[in-house]
């Protein structure tokens, strides 16, 4: 059992989401930075899709009521377990009575906390992810509140005494995200050619800022105004996370994990799946740049990301094997 001491409603239980029900209007949801949650789980020997916590509002504190192990990944935050400092992207033991503190990020936006065995919550339509908009999944379909108690599944978790850390090359954040624009690779979407030449130039040639209207459903951006060559009325159609819509205001919206399953605004581009974690880790005020890529490059980026996770599973299995008594 763990107990939530300090939190905010944007912090939720997440796993890798609820695919397969878009045609019933149910969003995929799941961790905004799915790689970070998957790796946190894998460090603990969990299935990569075990339920953990997504922390979007810091500081966050929880108290362990049992001896267990946890892993913290995602944003670069100061982390402490009682008086012990713990680097991010680290798995470590926590004893009953000890408190985990995750402070505001130095870089990035979302932290993930996974627990040995995963959170013991009912699966709803194939997932334990919180769908706060529809009010189901996770912990009673809502964000975390002070005093919430969550049970853990029982698990064997052979961690080395000093814990276990991971360093991913693409996560080495150089400088402050506010100071340098985050590059997002994009593919053109259905209405790309309906936009003006100026809109095309502005979309990839200028910087975009994430406004304060940014949450798990999507981010509204501010920047130059993107115009259609002629107004278009579209019928409602299915959309995927990463879709960059342009409403009549000309200011784009990037649809994300909890987005409505259907939309009606013209779509200029789609952020590639392999770069969605960069958006998850982009705080309000961060600047973005869109970089057009080929479909081959987008697919290769996805292949690399999946191979990295698979390699991680293999490495974890070898090290876990060594740690177990013969």
């Amino acid at each position: 059992m763990i107990e939530i001491l300090t939190t905010g409603l944007p912090n939720t239980v997440q796993d890798l989401g609820r695919p397969g029900h878009l045609s019933l209007g149910i969003s995929h949801g799941g961790a905004m930075d799915s790689q970070a949650l998957a790796i946190a789980n894998l460090m603990l020997g969990n299935d990569r899709s075990a339920a953990g916590l997504e922390i979007a509002l810091h500081p966050f504190r929880l108290k362990a009521h049992v001896d267990t192990a946890l892993a913290i990944t995602g944003a670069d935050c100061p982390i402490r377990i009682d008086d012990r400092r713990c680097p991010p992207w680290w798995a470590t033991a926590i004893r009953a009575g000890e408190t985990l503190l995750v402070e505001a990020p130095r870089a990035g936006a979302r932290s993930y906390v996974a627990f040995a065995g995963g959170l013991d919550l009912p699966s709803v339509m194939g997932s334990r992810a919180t769908d706060a908009k529809a009010g189901f999944g996770g912990l009673a379909g809502r964000g975390l509140a002070r005093g919430d108690r969550l049970r853990l599944n029982t698990a064997m978790c052979p961690l080395p005494p000093a814990g276990l850390g991971v360093a991913l090359e693409e996560r080495q954040i150089t400088g402050n995200a506010i100071a340098s624009a985050i590059e997002l690779r994009v593919l053109p979407a259905a209405e790309f050619h309906s936009f003006t030449a100026q809109a095309h130039a502005a979309f990839t040639g200028s910087e975009w800022k994430i406004t304060s209207e940014a949450n798990r459903m999507g981010y509204r951006l501010s920047g130059e105004t993107l115009s259609l060559a002629s107004p278009r009325e579209l019928l409602s159609h299915g959309i995927v996370p990463g879709t960059v819509q342009v409403p009549p205001s000309g200011q784009p919206i990037i649809q994300l994990a909890d987005a409505n399953t259907c939309g009606g605004y013209p779509k200029i581009a789609t952020v590639i799946e392999a770069d969605l974690w960069r958006l998850a880790q982009a705080p309000v005020g961060a600047r973005l740049r869109f970089l057009p890529v080929s479909i081959e490059a987008a697919t290769q980026a996805l292949r690399t990301a999946r191979q990295q996770l698979d390699a991680f599973v293999a490495a974890r299995n070898i090290s876990a094997g060594r740690l177990r008594p013969a």
Binding site: P19, L235, S236, G238, T261, C262, A298
Partner: peptide
């Protein structure tokens, strides 16, 4: 992986590492 009927349109999700 999934097909999503819209209004006179259809979104089809697939695994790009299995097909293209």
């Amino acid at each position: 992986r999934e097909t999503v009927p819209g209004m006179n349109n259809l979104l089809v999700l697939f695994d790009p590492l299995v097909t293209d």
